[in-house]
């Protein structure tokens, strides 16, 4: 069982959703990014998603773009990202990397899976890779026991949901809305319907991301999904903080609020089996 499956199983055993927190590696700098991600874990994040900063993040809104720019200006490389993921994994939290495809391909598909596994990472989320283009990636990740997480969207057809879910291991990432990353005041009603459709084609856990920023939203999503993914809201706090101390304390504060949220799911949601 990979660390990812383990994290979802543990949350399920506690009758709650897993909390997944995202921050870009190297933001605001290498050392502090590890510090912030560790703070997330201590405050209740089950799975850490370490973002690989990329020059052309076309699925990201302005907040993640700004953070990625800062990390790139600081000279963060994919090798650093893997090392940072390794540092975070030492907390015991399941640690995955989220990366656009070109940096992985340039690093070497096999080498990326191998080095991440050696560092202690357990999976990779690839927002712009489709199963059709994944032959080499599937082989490399199988070889090194790295989970492959692809995204599904409200616009995905049922056939497409099956294809993508079949290609996933670990969990299926359900984009709550048609759009780019960034906190929204409400999470679209499309998410619940999407999760229900995904459940019809797979037994894998389904986590919902895009637009989630509050404990209230986390509770709402935890009622029907196995995982709640939060990214931009954490970054916003770091961008707004005057220093790393304040950033760390507000990141931990939000993580605690979200962790309480995923434990507060409505009982009328039915069993997550």
């Amino acid at each position: 069982m990979t660390a990812l499956a383990d994290a979802f199983a543990r949350a399920r055993a506690e009758e709650r959703a897993a909390l997944i927190g995202y921050l870009p590696a190297g933001f605001p700098n290498r050392e502090d990014s590890v510090r912030l991600m560790r703070a997330m874990v201590e405050a209740g994040v089950d799975i850490v998603e370490v973002g690989l900063p990329y020059s052309d993040p076309l699925m990201d809104g302005p907040v993640i773009q700004a953070a990625a720019d800062q990390a790139l200006r600081g000279g963060t490389t994919p090798a650093d990202v893997i090392a940072i993921a390794g540092d975070v994994a030492k907390t015991g939290a399941a640690t995955v990397v989220m990366s656009y495809w070109n940096p992985v391909e340039r690093f070497g598909v096999e080498a990326f899976a191998r080095d991440l596994a050696a560092a202690g990472g357990c999976g990779v989320i690839t927002p712009d890779l489709t199963p059709e283009e994944s032959a080499a990636w599937a082989a490399a990740t199988r070889e090194h026991d790295i989970d492959r997480v692809y995204l599904v969207a409200p616009s995905s057809t049922d056939e497409r949901l099956r294809t993508v879910s079949d290609a996933c291991t670990g969990f299926v990432y359900a984009a709550s809305t048609m759009g780019v990353t960034g906190a929204r005041s409400s999470v679209s009603g499309a998410a619940e319907a999407l999760v229900a459709r995904v459940r019809r084609v797979t037994d894998l856990p389904v986590a919902v991301g895009l637009g989630v920023s509050t404990g209230e939203q986390a509770a709402e999503i935890a009622a029907y999904a196995d995982g709640v993914i939060v990214g931009s809201a954490f970054i916003r706090l770091v961008l707004d903080a005057p220093g790393i101390e304040e950033a760390e304390s507000s990141v931990a504060g939000l993580a605690r609020e979200l962790a309480a949220g995923v434990r507060r799911r409505r009982i009328d949601a039915g069993p997550v089996t």
């Binding site: 712009d128 692809y150 057809t157 497409r160 984009a175």
Partner: peptide, 11 residues
């Protein structure tokens, strides 16, 4: 090929 967010696949 196609290297795009899944949301665009249907379109």
């Amino acid at each position: 090929g196609r290297f795009v967010p899944e949301a665009l696949t249907a379109a």
